[in-house]
Design a protein around this nucleic acid. Structure first.
Lengths: 342, 342
DNA sequence: ATACTTTGTGTAATCGATTACATTTATCAT
DNA sequence: ATGATAAATGTAATCGATTACACAAAGTAT
């Protein structure tokens, strides 16, 4: 911080009132007579006063900040969500801290520490793979009700969350391929222990069953949402004797990795094999070929998660019942050029 | 924050010492006798004490936090830089806040406010287009020496910065194309008022001059680093009567947008036209075709910027002389498949 | 006119850690 | 043995805002 001279006392002196009055002008202006209020605001402007957040936090035990925990900032998927969160939180004077799960491990700082150091009031977690250890620490410290999950969530808990309709998304994807005449449909999943992986795989299986499509174990390929895992999946597909004619990828990045390698190996997308992704990041429209995918409304995921968190940490809110039901955000099929008639 | 009961006083009581001693155990352990120190640490462990950052900040006027200002979180280019910054700052107990210039405009919160609210000790700015207005406010408040620029910088000031060798990068790009036999080389620039735009264009022009390559005004196409501007550049190129055989793009994203549209219009990359980018984001290796580009050492940019900032805001550091010389990070040509013999 | 609210403002305690200054004890040179 | 110096610790003021409580003035009911 920097040496700053003007304290609340200076404003009080300037306005000819007590510090209490100045403080009230800022936090509960209704309590003041109009003339006094105007007077105080004039003094604030005149002195260029700014409240010292550290002092306020110390006294009120409210940090006025929220932490967003992102699994991987390098994945452009998250940016819009962050924008959504900021948009919702920005007008209140809540600041948004962003941390990356991957980096965090390195720092050795535990997550509860953010709370215990009174640096944040709440957390939006975009990583459902939060170690049980961390979660337990939250519960131990009575902090479990200050966390909201977005996109991902933790299974078998009733922590509040906002999610895309992943099952529906997967079903849309499969149905789209089906309608193009594809019957042999493969799926590159996310990482084994991820909730999105389960949901999307389940949606895929449901729809495949409903449409009575053939199933082969090798057509379910394990990935991890990354470009690299798309590459590996492509290698596997190329090796298959009974190749699928279409692949539903659990993320756009996987789809890119997949298409990149398929093409490098002489398979054409979509002529030889159709590919569909999940997420609809900006780049999907600019890939070659442009990627058919399931769009998640990332901005909505962000704003809703922020709203939900505000509800949770707002002390006068009592509606904790409905929080346990996840908020579901609709997805949408975006048809581009990576899918074609079988 | 949450109700937390254990204060420094409790630790002091438990250890049978004064609060001053406990405080010293944490901040200046050398001042204590070894036995006392051990004793205090034992009490800290026993009570589960954690220092209250708000109180510490209030007293010391040090926030223990740094803000990183990113022009656009949606651009995956920035993630590695952030990781570098975190890596450097993580071991000290400095937390890293991340804000997006675009979002920031919406919140209406001025940048100096972060400082004046004593929320941060310093700032790493990845956006050279910081409004003059903001800069002036920094100067007015004596905060100009708490800012470090990384990647981008502000022209005509001596604010400290860490940058890639952009001129050299552009020259490498042009030389690479030249060596492949290309003579008609176009360049898609960044936005008009951007320092990187200038540096890369200049490097391009220098090398083009040195190699005595033909020059046409229309071969310098204005872009803005975005995917969309790559698309627009492609449209322009397609319309040209005298088409270049190679295009040097000011960013990888532009290159993607460009290749996407060229391909859609029936031009093949690299057979009909070679494309080279700048940045080397993860996706570049997974595009179709994989992108030849100039790699910036993003992690190094991050760590060095963080180091530089620490130097600047460290009160006992006096070496302010050398800060004015920008730190230059080497770049590297990465040859992939988007460039080929003319 | 009296008692009782309501409204508006001030006084001073408080949040929790740091640190200037004071004090005690140990060490050392003469 | 004595005064001087160093080492270790304690006392209490302080950072700046909030707010419980107190109180005065004005309004209201009877």
């Amino acid at each position: 911080m920097v040496q700053k001279n003007v304290r609340i006392r200076d404003v009080a002196r300037q306005a000819g009132v007590s510090t209490a009055t100045v403080s009230r002008a800022l936090t509960t202006p209704d309590l003041l007579a109009e003339a006094t209020r105007e007077n105080v605001f004039a003094a604030i402007r005149a002195t260029g006063y700014r409240v010292n957040k550290a002092a306020r936090t110390l006294r009120t035990r409210q940090a006025g900040a929220v932490l967003v925990l992102v699994p991987n900032l390098g994945n452009p998927f998250f940016s819009r969500i962050l924008a959504g969160i900021s948009a919702r939180l920005g007008d209140r004077d809540t600041s948004v801290l962003i941390a990356d799960t991957m980096n965090r491990v390195a720092t050795g700082k535990s997550l509860v520490d953010y709370f215990l150091d009174s640096q944040i009031d709440g957390m939006i977690c975009l990583d459902g793979g939060l170690p049980e250890n961390d979660l337990q620490q939250f519960r131990d410290n009575g902090l479990a009700d200050r966390i909201v999950f977005a996109c991902e969530w933790v299974q078998n808990t009733d922590l509040p969350s906002v999610r895309s309709d992943n099952i529906q998304g997967a079903r849309l994807a499969v149905r789209h391929l089906y309608e193009l005449g594809h019957r042999k449909i493969a799926h590159v999943t996310g990482p084994l222990d991820n909730v999105l992986t389960h949901a999307r795989r389940e949606g895929m299986l449901i729809e495949r069953g409903r449409l009575e499509l053939p199933a082969r174990d090798e057509w379910i390929i394990r990935g991890d949402f990354s470009l690299e895992s798309g590459r590996e999946a492509a290698e596997e597909i190329i090796r298959m004797e009974n190749r699928p004619t279409a692949v539903f990828c659990a993320s756009d990045q996987v789809a890119f990795g997949l298409m990149s390698t398929l093409t490098a190996r002489g398979l054409r997308v979509p002529e030889d094999i159709s590919v569909i992704g999940f997420d609809d990041i900006e780049l999907s429209d600019f890939y070659v070929p442009s990627l058919t995918t399931i769009r998640q409304d990332r901005h909505a995921l962000g704003t809703r998660a922020a709203s939900l968190l505000l509800e949770c940490i707002d002390p006068q809110s009592t509606a904790d019942g409905h929080r346990k039901t996840p908020v579901i955000v609709d997805v949408e099929l975006i048809v581009r050029h990576s899918t074609a008639m079988a």
